[in-house]
């Protein structure tokens, strides 16, 4: 029972407390891709912890095996058939399997829905858009400056005439590079994963925070990619122009829009974290993942 309690406590730590710390961390905006990795590590840790907790809970309730053999089979380190028939019992495996299968199912559902929405969108684009070889994008006649991309199978960058009009050649180049970074980085899959996690654990602070944070961090990562070939001024000015051309929104959440955060980041560049700090983040993420395994399999708790 002890390990189940410890696992539950750790799940609460990862699901409630850790996201608050990570969301407030200052290094994340300087290394957005690393920060996305950290968010995924937290979500993976939460999944592993809850899976193991569910497994232990079922095992204990069946009062089948205690002692070393039971412990090893609980961790999957001991051949299941010879150690315990409880582990082979489908009823034992069902709760932990559900914890893993639920987000996996939502992920497939998201990817499928995304593709369906894109198919519809692409059909519309085919009849009203004009493919432009110069921009390597599809141009749509519309008087609101809009730039977006469809990532994935139907990969495509779409620009309205108004956007081409308000942006200079260099600014447009920077925006297109940003959109291509989304496509090249397969950011739609990143969104789908966070979304699937959120659907599986609705109301969990980690899920709520991850959704907003990862979306912002992916935008920053695309900005950084665009900056490899384009200047900060051009990308920042393009952001202003496109935002200014859109119908303004009345109400606002706290902390301002993500565009404001991105723009300030462009205008006030900060050094990216050093090698040691990066290794620290990766190491911390791995350590967080190992803790539940240690609790479940370690010699300290029965």
């Amino acid at each position: 029972m002890t390990s189940t309690l410890f696992l539950a406590g750790y799940a609460a730590f990862v699901g409630v407390f850790a996201p608050r710390v990570l969301a407030r961390a200052r290094w994340t905006h300087r290394a957005p891709r690393l920060a996305v990795l950290a968010w995924y590590a937290l979500m993976a840790t939460f999944l592993v912890t809850v899976t193991l907790a569910a497994y232990h809970l079922v095992l204990r309730e069946q009062h089948v095996h205690d002692g070393l053999v039971g412990l090893l089979s609980a961790c999957g380190l001991f051949p299941v058939g010879s150690a315990s028939h409880a582990a082979a019992d489908p009823a034992t495996l069902l709760p932990p399997a559900l914890v893993v299968l639920l987000p996996a199912g939502w992920f497939l559902d998201r990817v499928w829905r995304t593709r369906r929405a894109q198919r519809r969108h692409v059909a519309l684009l085919a009849v009203v858009g004009n493919p432009s070889a110069d921009h390597d994008a599809v141009i749509v006649d519309h008087d609101t400056p809009v730039v977006y991309c469809l990532p994935g199978r139907y990969r495509q960058v779409v620009v309205t005439r108004a956007a081409i009009k308000v942006l200079s050649q260099e600014q447009l180049g920077a925006v297109l590079a940003h959109e291509r970074a989304h496509i090249a980085g397969r950011h739609h899959l990143c969104h789908a994963m966070v979304d699937a996690f959120g659907r599986s654990f609705p109301g969990l602070p980690l899920a709520r925070q991850a959704k907003g944070q990862v979306a912002l961090l992916l935008e920053m990562a695309a900005d950084d990619r665009a900056l490899r070939l384009h200047s900060r001024e051009n990308l920042a000015a393009a952001m202003c122009e496109v935002a200014a051309g859109r119908a303004p929104r009345a109400a606002f959440g706290a902390g301002g829009s993500s565009a404001a955060v991105r723009l300030h980041r462009l205008l006030v560049p900060a050094a990216t974290p050093g090698r040691a700090a990066r290794l620290g983040v990766v190491g911390g993420s791995l350590a967080a993942l190992l803790v539940p395994l240690l609790i479940a399999c370690g010699p300290f708790f029965g």
Partner: peptide
Amino acid sequence: LMQDALGDNPDPAGALLSFVEQMSASEV
């Protein structure tokens, strides 16, 4: 098409990735 792009339609996560989202006039 633009309704999809400007986020007026409920749209599954990541189907379209917009360059900037909507903002208030004061923020612009």
